[in-house]
Design a binder for these strands. Structure first.
Length: 520
RNA sequence: GCGGGAAUAGCUCAGUGGUAGAGCAUCAGCCUUCCAAGCUGAGGGCCGCGGGUUCGAUCCCCGUUUCCCGCUCCA
């Protein structure tokens, strides 16, 4: 099975069996938005619960937070999200390069410029394109084209062409407005009053920005900022001593330039983030610690642990706030891609928020009698990416021979029992002789213990086993004729398809034991 | 944003300028059975959406939306 096939099959299974649907499908779908169906929501919740148990309940030095998605707009000014991600982007119409206008090479407006290409062939193609699209004849000299006139005060950084698209604003954050007043009203009033007359380009944009600013709010592009903003409240109310962490899971929103690969990169996604506050100087130690912790955690739930790797960021790809960063990457069908980033954010965020809010965001160590702004190590994981990773990891096709000697394919999701949406399928061997009643009782018993169990009496028993294999149910329990005589049932293992017989009244304890064992 | 491909039943796909098919799945019944068994029957599609050409379009043309692949981009 090729990588492309694997991806297709997983996507198809997701829809067919109720894991993931395209959003608003009956209206033609919405780009990059997906809904988690009955099984998908269980898988995602199981994954996130496992994370929460590991990161918060499993240790004394991390506490949780569930902050509002919409925060004070100044938060995003302080964090740099507002300024850093609204730069004008331009496409070169000749070489198709996309670039930031403010970082492009400056030229004199109206000056003659030269276009350069990697080889003669590319230059010839470009020459024809310019002739055809812009009606301009350029002089070709080997790999260069001469005679173009600069329309703006910059040219394409790649080929030097002045043939460019309009400047487009790229907004990272989803913008909305808080309160019932319509910001368009302000704009309309300004136009009527003539306040916008004579303005164009960036000036016009700036003026419009200003008019619509007062009620403007943004959907958070990461969950991290609330944990910085509430640092003091949490530290004091919970009497936390450094080092300690604040963890949060939830939705974040980004206007990605390109969305791709199913749920891998979408504009609305779910994060699992933790900010670990420590004393400057101990940050490198904690960085190493969390990198190892997080890598182990991801591998624990995977069948193929070799598909994960650690990749340190090169100095030039580090974010503006980071001193160092490691990505935990997974080998997706299209290649390695990010799953979690562990960054040393230093005291950048607390410092910025202190500066913008005018509040003190530092920590006093009563033993050492010193005051400092903590450094922060941030393991930030993609929950929705995790769902994709484990689906890809779990998908298996096995060639089997039927009792009649025919070859067939068994599709199995070898999900970790902890993650499996349904823990046990409960089946009466046949739909009569009181077997359904016994099976229903077993289901009720599991549900009462908080274990997701599913009753199924449709079709032949073999078919039911296979249907549950396909959605990753780790154990199948069957009530048969013998059950009615001696009070036992069979328990079938998803991965080995082997069965053994145990007393019905111990089956809940048995499954609980298996779940506990799998968790270790 | 660019280039290429795709869109037909829940899924995988076939098909033709003359009002649509298969396999699997679903549902009902028979069979009463431990690994997708068999038999009988049923439901289900304005052939992604909008426009054009045509007597007539699922098919040809244009646009659009969504998905996939490759670039590009990417905290």
């Amino acid at each position: 099975m090729s990588n492309a096939e694997l991806m297709k099959k997983v996507v198809s299974l997701c829809k067919r069996r109720g894991f993931v649907f395209q959003s608003s499908e009956i209206y033609g779908g919405l780009k990059s938005a997906y809904d988690y169906g009955p099984l998908g929501v269980e898988l995602k919740r199981n994954l996130m619960s496992a994370w929460w148990r590991e990161m918060v309940h499993g240790r004394e030095d991390v506490v949780g937070l569930d902050a509002s998605i919409v925060m004070h707009p100044r938060v995003w000014e302080a964090s740099g999200h507002l300024a850093g991600f609204s730069d004008p982007l331009v496409d070169c119409k000749v070489c198709k390069e996309r670039f930031r206008a403010d970082k492009a090479p400056r030229v004199e407006k109206g000056a003659e410029v030269t276009l350069s290409f990697p080889d003669k062939g590319a230059a010839k193609v470009a020459e024809e394109l310019v002739q055809k699209q812009f009606g301009v004849t350029l002089k070709r000299h080997d790999k260069d084209l001469q005679g173009a006139v600069a329309q703006r005060d910059y040219v394409c950084p790649n080929c030097g062409s002045p043939y460019l698209s309009d400047e487009r604003q790229f907004n990272l954050m989803f913008k909305s407005s808080l309160g019932p007043t319509d910001p368009l009203g302000e704009v309309a009033a300004a136009i009527e009053g003539g306040a916008l007359a004579g303005l164009e380009g960036r000036e016009l944009r700036a003026k419009l920005e200003e008019l619509t600013k007062p009620p403007a709010v943004y959907l958070r592009p990461e969950t991290a900022q609330a944990m910085f903003v509430q640092f003091v409240n949490i530290q004091q109310s919970m009497s936390m001593k450094i080092p300690f962490g604040i963890a949060q899971m939830g939705k974040s929103f980004r206007n990605e330039i390109t969305v791709e690969h199913f749920i891998f990169r979408s504009c609305e996604f779910e994060q699992m983030e933790m900010e670990f506050f420590c004393e400057p100087g101990t940050d490198d130690h904690w960085m190493d610690y969390w990198v190892a912790q997080r890598m182990n955690w991801w591998q624990k739930y995977a069948n193929d642990k070799t598909k994960f790797r650690l990749r340190p960021h090169a100095p030039d790809e580090l974010a503006h706030y980071a001193k160092g960063c490691f990505d935990i990457e997974y080998e997706y069908p299209w290649g390695y891609g990010e799953l979690e980033g562990i960054a040393n954010r230093t005291d950048y965020d607390l410092g910025k928020h202190a500066q913008y809010s005018g509040q003190k965001l530092d920590y006093f160590d009563p033993e050492a009698k010193k005051r400092f702004v903590p450094y922060v190590i941030e393991p930030a994981a993609g929950a929705t990416r995790g769902v994709l990773v484990y689906l890809l990891d779990a998908y298996c096709e096995e060639e089997l021979e039927t009792p009649r000697g025919e070859k067939e394919t068994r599709v199995v999701l070898k999900l970790h029992p902890e993650l499996a949406p349904i823990k046990v399928g409960v089946f009466p061997l046949v739909k009569k002789d009181g077997m359904p009643e016994v099976a229903r009782k077993v289901v009720a018993e599991f549900l009462a213990h908080g274990i997701n169990a599913k009753y199924d009496e449709q079709h032949a028993i073999g078919k039911r086993y296979r249907r549950h294999d396909e959605i990753g149910t780790p154990w199948g329990l069957t009530i048969d004729h013998q059950s009615l005589e001696d009070g036992t049932l069979t328990i079938r293992d998803r991965d080995t398809m082997t069965q053994r017989r145990i007393p019905i009244d111990t089956v809940v304890a048995e499954i609980e034991g298996l779940l506990r064992a799998a968790r270790k």
